[in-house]
């Protein structure tokens, strides 16, 4: 069971949170100028790295705030927690 440090509430157990998937997705638009391919990329295609994953989480049963997490999908180690809208810190193994 993961322990995630909510930037607002502190360290809490996994069951208080919900993972919202890959962070830093750009919603393409305007809608009438987006190709089917672009839309599919945005909706379904994911990096799905075996290693450091940048993802967004919400403290669902807590402050209800969203934030970003850099987490290893292999060891589940959490390398960084940073705010929505912030760029990820430089980490070894990240794509960006």
């Amino acid at each position: 069971m993961l322990q995630i440090s909510c930037p607002y509430c502190g360290a809490r157990a996994e069951i208080e949170f919900r993972c919202g998937g890959q962070a830093h997705l750009e919603r393409p638009g305007p809608h009438d100028q987006v190709s089917d391919r672009q839309w599919a990329e945005y909706l379904f295609y994911r990096d799905n790295p075996k290693g450091v994953s940048l993802e967004r989480w919400v403290h669902r049963f807590g402050c209800r705030q969203w934030f970003n997490v850099a987490r290893s999908t292999l060891t589940h180690e959490i390398l960084a927690v940073y705010g929505m809208g912030e760029q990820p810190p430089q980490l070894e193994g990240t794509k960006r």
Binding site: V58, R64, W66, M84
Partner: peptide, 10 residues
């Protein structure tokens, strides 16, 4: 929840 997510993230 959905509304919150769109407001905070997008």
């Amino acid at each position: 929840d959905n509304m919150d997510e769109w407001l905070q993230c997008e």
